[in-house]
């Protein structure tokens, strides 16, 4: 990624004001309402440092979930939750590539998981209060002053992301740093990622960059690299169309705790309603015939 010319103007190391459109300097992205933004998480360069988890907690003022060890590799966070909006998963595999790798060398897969900001977002479609909405940046956000904690978004999400907090009784999840985007700042996790495993940007540019990255990896001999959540790929199945936060993976989706072929729950509303009403109508007609007979 080439550096933005405006970077040269910033000679200070301490700031008392915001740099206008700071994201141009840090991510080479100008944030403007009306455009679609997202995350491209390239798991092949994730080093499992959890800077994203920490940056997310700090910026969003989120409490810790689990203080202790899980025994599951270096993952002591466990899962996304109402208080955890980035989660780095660690998968220890004995040998990744027999030809190049010594067995004692890294067999680790690491992935920073996050809300996928689905195009046809099931949580949003399920929300009965309109608390969950699509922002001007094409991201999915829960409005905390409206949510009444019905919890229907929780089973709606095909990725097990959104969660109702036991503390305040509202649904919480990643906002793709809605407040930072409004201020021209790159989301905290992407800004803090030291290897650019998390890339923030305009969605169509990210998708093109991700395709190039897959081609590059294939050329390097990593034949199992593929995208999860781009149009037509795994994770974007069943009428979800595409995910604004998508991933480059090198193993089956389930390895990373992701579903291979999720579906769009709203597509089941009409079949269920028509079948239920038809059953009731059939029995109602039978009842009418019984009550109307003269014998």
């Amino acid at each position: 990624m080439e550096m933005h010319p405006r970077v040269r103007e910033q000679t200070r190391s301490e700031f008392d004001t915001l740099i206008p459109d700071e994201s141009e300097l840090t991510a080479n992205v100008r944030i403007e309402p009306g455009r679609a933004y997202g995350f491209f998480t390239d798991t092949t360069v994730c080093i499992g440092c959890k800077a994203c988890e920490v940056a997310c907690k700090e910026w969003n003022n989120l409490p810790a979930d689990n203080i202790g060890l899980t025994g599951e590799s270096y993952d002591n966070t466990g899962a996304l939750s109402a208080n955890t909006w980035r989660h780095v998963s660690f998968i220890e595999k004995p040998v990744l590539r027999h030809d190049l790798q010594q067995p004692f060398q890294s067999g680790w897969l690491m992935m920073s998981d996050v809300c996928k900001h689905c195009h046809n977002a099931p949580c949003l479609e399920a929300c009965p209060t309109g608390a969950i909405f699509k922002t001007e940046f094409d991201t999915v956000v829960v409005q905390q002053d409206i949510c009444n904690g019905c919890g229907y978004c929780v089973p709606a999400c095909p990725f097990g992301v959104v969660d109702v907090s036991k503390v305040d009784g509202k649904a919480h999840k990643c906002t793709l740093c809605y407040d930072r985007l409004k201020g021209g700042l790159e989301p905290a996790c992407a800004k803090s990622c030291p290897t650019d495993s998390i890339q923030f940007g305009e969605l169509h540019k990210l998708q093109a960059r991700a395709q190039e990255r897959v081609a590059e990896l294939h050329a390097l001999g990593v034949a199992n690299a593929y995208l999860y959540g781009t149009p037509g790929a795994a994770g974007a199945t069943g009428d979800l169309q595409y995910l604004n936060a998508f991933f480059l993976l090198t193993d089956r989706p389930e390895t990373y705790n992701l579903p291979a072929a999720p579906t769009r729950p709203a597509n089941r509303v009409a079949p269920a309603l028509t079948s239920g009403l038809a059953t009731v109508a059939g029995l109602a007609v039978a009842a009418l015939a019984l009550f109307a007979r003269r014998w």
Partner: peptide
């Protein structure tokens, strides 16, 4: 993934 739930 360590037998953890995939959904909530």
């Amino acid at each position: 993934y360590y037998g953890r739930a995939q959904l909530k």
